[in-house]
């Protein structure tokens, strides 16, 4: 496999990493785009989904949004937005497209998490005289946390993927290594760029899976479940 040696040579060539359009710059752009958009989409989606789940409204919307999001090609939205009026404002077309595709998994998972919090526990808390806000903060939110974190993880992986595609209409990020490689018929660069993207996506996925385990409030309460009443 001569290609593997070529890819290795590409990756170990220092000049490919530094300088304008080098790996480090593209990696920085990719992480910046992913991070900013994850924060933005969490800030938009989580309060809304938690509230909708708490009052039990808009379930069909929150659940169907994920299905609708799947049917709309990410590539098409990126191109449409970059050609529209937003395209004139630098990164904004990319940021809006990324956030749009990160919202569905966040909304769907957080909503489902709150709705499927054990109704008996919620009723008991209400019976103890908890107000709506206390109920949401102290009962529903901790019970929903595993699914919320699944949503954050899915959204983050999605963002890494969408940010890669953003290179096609001329955005930054590691995808640029792949598109530039295609442009120059430079297969080693295409494969090297793809490897870097894949590793970044897997690292993000692993990190958030670990974070999910550390944050889970039920983690500290092992099998000592109360006797059924």
């Amino acid at each position: 496999m001569g290609i593997l040696t070529d890819v290795w040579t590409w990756l170990t060539t220092g000049s490919h990493w530094t300088g304008d359009g080098g790996v480090l710059q593209r990696l920085g752009e990719h992480i910046y785009l992913t991070g900013v958009c994850l924060l933005l989409s969490c800030a938009l989606a989580l309060p809304l989904a938690l509230w909708l789940g708490h009052v039990g409204r808009g379930g069909a919307l929150a659940v169907n949004l994920s299905n609708a999001g799947r049917a709309v090609p990410t590539f098409a939205v990126l191109v449409l937005l970059s050609m529209g009026p937003l395209g004139r404002y630098g990164d904004w077309a990319t940021i809006v497209a990324l956030v749009l595709f990160a919202l569905p998994p966040l909304l769907t998972n957080a909503y489902t998490g709150v709705r499927e919090a054990d109704r008996e526990v919620v009723e008991a808390a209400r019976g103890m005289g908890m107000t709506g806000l206390q109920l949401l903060r102290q009962v529903e939110l901790p019970l929903a946390l595993p699914l919320i974190m699944t949503g954050v993880q899915t959204a983050a992986v999605q963002l890494v993927a969408t940010a890669t595609l953003a290179a096609l209409p001329g955005g930054g990020g590691l995808g640029r290594l792949i598109t530039a490689g295609f442009g120059n018929y430079d297969t080693p660069q295409v494969v090297a760029g793809a490897l870097l993207v894949a590793v970044l996506a897997l690292l993000v996925e692993r990190t958030l899976t670990l974070a999910e385990r550390l944050l889970d409030p039920m983690r500290r309460r092992p099998a000592r479940s109360p006797a059924p009443t």
Binding site: A161, L165, I178, T187, G193, A198, A201
Partner: peptide, 18 residues
């Protein structure tokens, strides 16, 4: 399968190119 699913599509197609 989880690892495969995590790889972004553009990277997947690029990796299959050679």
């Amino acid at each position: 399968t989880t690892i495969l699913y995590t790889v972004p599509s553009l990277a997947m197609f690029a990796l299959l190119l050679p």
